[in-house]
Write a protein that binds this DNA or RNA. Structure first.
Lengths: 123, 123
DNA sequence: ACCGGTGTATTAAACGTTTAATACGGTCTA
DNA sequence: TAGACCGTATTAAACGTTTAATACACCGGT
């Protein structure tokens, strides 16, 4: 569980995204138990309420579910799981396009840049 | 002068970026006069102090300069102007890479997506 | 000389969001 | 039945940004 926070974006949003990334890349199995609110808070050194808020949001979106007073679990709905990856990608791409379009960069220059930077070893 | 603000990012930051985009795309000539603080505030419906803060930042970065008590002007330093475009692009690309890398998307899928969306009429 | 426009500076208050503190009720188990 | 762990709820505090109110000095044209 490794999350580095930036301070401009709400922490709970970053936590949600982190979980989505895990789900999208298959690091979480459907139905898999996730850390309790309090345990997550401990691990990430955040307030339990912030963890709660993140989980609440994920629950509303159907990404996780809670039965009784047991730690929540990743949804078993494969359809939802499959959607997560696409949504993350689309959001990232759209946001990138929106930020780059005003600068009028030739698409080939862009592609070349991305290919090079994306392929570079893990930075 | 058309700027649409999102409310997550400080307004003055968005104003600065907007000006940088104008400079990067050549919409501003070197030495060209820009609106006074108070006029910009009127145009964008923001507080004069917010305009001042944006301009101050640009002045610190050498993008604009001020002589006497006249409205500020775009720098005549072509080197700085040339740099603006590169910086905007690098920043956008780096930020995109950072957000997309955790999802493990094949680079070709990415390139294909970007080409399609970027080429789509102005959305 | 005056008036209106510049840029600049300081200080305080308002505002919304995020985070924190705390408490409550449930369930399980030793 | 007591304790520990769950999720949940309510309220308060902290924080950063923005707004606001003023004030100052400067220059230019009337």
């Amino acid at each position: 569980m490794n999350v580095s926070f930036n301070k401009r974006e709400p922490v709970y949003v970053q936590v949600v995204r982190h979980f989505k990334e895990q789900i999208a890349t298959g690091n979480f199995e459907p139905g898999q138990e996730i850390p309790s609110r309090r345990e997550l808070a401990n691990q990430l050194k955040i307030n339990p309420n912030t963890a709660q808020r993140a989980y609440k949001e994920m629950e509303v979106e159907g990404l996780i579910y809670t039965e009784g007073n047991n730690p929540s679990r990743i949804t078993k709905d494969e359809k939802i799981i499959g959607t997560v990856r696409e949504e993350l990608i689309i959001q990232a791409v759209d946001s990138f396009i929106a930020s780059i379009r005003p600068i009028d960069v030739p698409v080939e220059e862009l592609v070349s840049l991305i290919k090079r930077k994306y392929t570079e070893s893990g930075n």
